[in-house]
Amino acid sequence: MNLQIATLLGQDGLTNGAIYALLALSILLVFTVTRILLIPLGEFVTFGALTMAAIQMGKLPQLEWLLLGLTCIDCSLDLYQQARSRFNRRKLQGVALKLGYAATLVILVHTLPLAELPMGAQILLTLALIVPLGPIMYRLFFQPLADAPSLVLLIVSIAVHVSMVGTGLLLFGPEGARTKPFSDSGFHLGSVMLKSQTLWVILVSIFLIVTLFIAFERTLYGKALRATAVNRMGARLLGISPVFAGKVTFALAAFIGSASGILIAPITTLYYDSGFIISLKGFVGAIIGGLVSYPLAAIGSVAVGMVEAFSMFWASGYKEIIVFTLIIPFLIWRSMTSHHVEDDE
């Protein structure tokens, strides 16, 4: 072990840690606002990466049909509900808007020369395809039982995860994919070669984290979400819609998930089922933060990335064991220091 190797491993750990931190923040955000442990978060990562890869190869990502199909179910549910009460002009407009959005995307994906688009447009298209899946997912699977015990929500979350993995296999096939790097250049730091993609990952992660922080501290919507997280009933009494809060957090999670996928796709091969293990490491980070503290979760995730990188060097066969064993001392520490509040909901 010399300085050069330590730098390389540290760079690797930091890159992965930044991604885990982003995922840990989304897990935390969704959990505090809706009490749902978002297990399918990893699928957003793989969907993002694989859609991007399909677009770069000039193949149809197929995801547009999933989006259209789910939007149709969503809209018919909306219409059914309205038919039972009374039709409301604004809500009808909303339905039309959603359907129009999905249809436009299907047309766009089928007419644009996907492979020739500039990379920025490809990224936008990927995000435009995946981010709406978040709120739709909340609407279809979680909103009907938003008041159910956390355990039920967890089980539904697992079910959604399993079916999304299956859908991923159907849409993208079993082969892994990786995408082109944002730029080919690298630069030297002392004797160590740094890849520009690494820098992209770290910078974008920091940017997203800071933006989220500002949004939560300064904007009305951010404050509304925070209020919901602190006290759901109280927020509701003050006129913050829990449905709205749920949809927004899911949209954010879908955005962060797919953005992470797009960020790491050039440096690693992702498979349709890689997402779970990645989000699980984010989850370890979130646990280190006790599922409440954002800064602790971010620091914990970076620590997870570092431990992973160095254990990969010293004991490659035991890497996963070492990473996931990390959770045990923290759970013990947590259970000793924090006193348990019975959550009777």
């Binding site: 990188a309 990969m312 066969g317």
Partner: peptide, 17 residues
């Protein structure tokens, strides 16, 4: 002689070794 998991997102450690 190094090992890795199929879904690993990074192989830096093994390859450095």
């Amino acid at each position: 002689s190094e090992q890795f998991q199929r879904q690993d997102t990074s192989m830096t450690g093994q390859s450095l070794k």
